[in-house]
Design a protein around this nucleic acid. Structure first.
Length: 253
DNA sequence: ATTCATGTTGTGAT
DNA sequence: TATCACAACATGAA
């Protein structure tokens, strides 16, 4: 799950803010008892994290690769289409509904204000996003490849493999390009696109039309030249890159 | 049946 | 000490 999906989740779960936890269940090994009776102070997303703040502590949920969630509010399922039979990792029951999370990492954060643990200027979807800072951090690793830097959550929090592939296609940059081979104008364009595409991703997700708008991720034809798309693992992270070798050539620019 | 995928963290070898 | 490859986690679709 990428950043925009987490921001959308935080939005959808706002009806639980101010509500008291009535029951807790699930197969997580964290202490569940302590959540009972707690009142939700706020729910927010940072990058790929979902944070639920309670009185003295918070919950941090990370959905990794296969995670999902669903929530019922006043009897209506506001999101998700998952099998009810599956055991949730963690479920919270409130007077007005229930949140169920699956296949995710859940941890307690020992803080009364988890917002202090997160630097919002790093989150590409945050109002406080700082593109200049991203540019500077990018420049600090001239030998790193752009595919790895775009996926670095300390530089572009929220960017995942889909956003990475789409941004590189839009800017016509080969995923294996070392930062030092990118002109300043091109670096700037990539930074800007990481945010604008993430915002677009969020709008599409909200309208349930994301998949049909992806141009190169998991496609076989380049959106620019209609040539064949290459699919291969690139960079130290070895995530699958989907790119057009003709429109996104490797080399100094 | 097998592989792959919107991801991160920890371990043990080098 | 640092870096790296790999495992672990865990589920559904192709």
């Amino acid at each position: 799950m990428e950043g925009p999906s987490l921001h959308l989740a935080a939005e959808q779960l706002q009806p639980f803010v101010g509500k008291r936890v009535k029951a807790v269940f699930g197969n997580t090994t964290i202490d569940q008892e302590r959540l009972k009776g707690q009142v939700v102070q706020r729910i927010f997303a940072w990058g790929k994290h979902l944070v639920i703040q309670f009185d003295g502590s918070a919950l941090r949920v990370h959905f990794l690769l296969f995670g999902s969630f669903e929530a019922d509010v006043l009897g209506i399922t506001v999101t998700g289409d998952y099998k009810r039979s599956r055991e949730p990792r963690l479920a919270l029951t409130f007077p007005n509904g229930e949140l169920r999370t699956y296949t995710c990492s859940v941890v307690h954060l020992e803080t009364k204000d988890a917002r202090k643990l997160y630097d919002r200027s790093v989150d590409v979807l945050a109002r406080q996003w700082d593109p200049q800072q991203a540019l500077e951090r990018m420049g600090k690793t001239p030998d790193e490849r752009i595919t790895d830097v775009l996926l670095d959550q300390e530089v572009f929090a929220g960017v995942g493999n889909i956003i990475k592939n789409e941004v590189l296609s839009l800017e016509r940059v080969h995923p294996a390009t070392p930062i030092k081979d990118l002109r300043p104008a091109q670096r700037k364009a990539l930074v800007k696109r990481a945010r604008t595409f993430s915002q677009q991703f969020l709008r599409w997700r909200r309208a349930f039309v994301l998949l049909k708008h992806l141009r190169i991720h998991r496609k076989s034809r380049c959106p620019h030249c209609d040539g064949p798309v290459k699919h291969e693992k690139v960079g130290k992270r070895k995530r699958m890159a989907h790119y057009c070798p003709k429109c996104q050539p490797l080399g100094k620019t």
